[in-house]
Amino acid sequence: MSNHPDAAAKTLDTNEFIKGLWKENPVFIQVLGMCPTLAVTNSVINAITMGLATSFVLIMSNLLVSSLRHVIPKQVRIATYILIIASFVTVADYVIQAVSLDVYKSLGAFIALIVVNCIILGRAEAFASKNSVGNSLLDALGMGVGFTFALLCLGGVREIMGNGTFLGYHVLSAHYQPWIIMILPGGGFFTLGAWLLLFNYLRKRKEKISMQ
């Protein structure tokens, strides 16, 4: 990533996409956006919807912020970013409402709260405002996919353990005893902690191997 404005303006760097998936994964590595990560991952469908909605807002706001980066005055840039993000959140809000009212109801206030998701503002401030439109798009795509993947990791474990289902289909025996705690807020913390443990372990092991 280049900090100097427009240093690599015309060249597209696929690393900007790859990094969001694993090396700078917004949830597992940067530990950002914990509010939706913990709150709406009690089922797979909620996790996917939240991931896609956030990705949409992320991509659109990154594109717009990047293309307006020479026009936005530095003093009011945060307010401008929030305004841009809020517009796209409104779009996502209405789209989810139109596609599935059930999912919309179960997500509740958390759709509107995408506005204050620090991943989006963070990418706008740290990346899109300094890089070309193409690279910003790649960055947003990578971060969006990484975020959705992380939510799916949590939602999958929580729905299977807490309900015995995946996307509403029974994947375990009909006599399975659900762990109710896994679909309660406490289960979100347990699952996130377990995933962070796994990812940190994998990263440490990789570093150890590469050092030898």
Binding site: Q177, W179, I180, L184, G186
Partner: peptide
């Protein structure tokens, strides 16, 4: 406490 939250009926 974890058991109580996980299996409230049992």
């Amino acid at each position: 406490a974890v058991m109580q939250a996980a299996f409230p009926v049992a």
